[in-house]
Amino acid sequence: MTAPPLTMLVIDDEPQIRRVVRNALLSASFGAAEDPEQPKVRVLEAATGTEGVDLAASELPDLIVLDLGLPDQTGLAVCREIRRWSAAPILVLSARHADTEKAALLDAGADDYMTKPFSTVELLARVRAQLRRARQVSEAKAPAERVVLGSITVDLALRRVQREGEVVHLTPTEWALLRTFLLSPRKTLTHRQLFTAVWGNSEGDAQQYLRVYVGHLRRKIEDDPIRPRFLQTEPGVGYRFEPDAVAEA
């Protein structure tokens, strides 16, 4: 049986960048490694935000590559508009390096971002990661009951964390953080998203110490908290939970 074709949408006003991205996407393979039948890739291109939103609505692409410097509207607005009705991963390209911009984009629903200039190797790696994540989300909504992180076992149902059979004490805040991370593997969670997940929409003193709570959590579940395997820092943006690190270790 042949895999369904993958549709990808590239929104960028620079024809040269569109060309580079299109060629990279067309030449790559996105199926599972052991699957001999690679899905066909179809790449759509849009030069303006409006055109991009229209194409995203009519063609329902599996993934969107969005440039921020569009002539007609801001990338942030396009991102927000598409996210209102589409769950397709959005990968943002930006020439600016401001972290506040990155965080704002992720808060608006983007899944990943890359700064220009970027290498096509890195672009493809990120596209693959996003496709894999999207597949996992659609296949398995319910998270596993038990998650193993190196020598740590987390039992979500019993709310228990054990290191080699011994119970590790977590404060309620640390537990809420850990749970949030485990529910969104491989996804960058912005500081704001973590605030909301742990404390809701209320404003409080505790929030300013979010990074400290993550520090405490790392000291409890990571072997080396300075070189964390599971809770990775995205400088200026937030944190990302990487269960894959287990396989690589």
Binding site: T100, Q208, Y209, R211, V212, V214, G215, R218, R219, P225, I226, R227, P228, T233, P235, G236
Partner: peptide, 18 residues
């Protein structure tokens, strides 16, 4: 700069990675 409370662990770790 957006000054917040953060840990030395995080800063050193991210610097080693950077």
């Amino acid at each position: 700069p957006m000054v917040v409370v953060d840990t030395a662990d995080d800063l050193v770790g991210a610097a080693l990675q950077g």
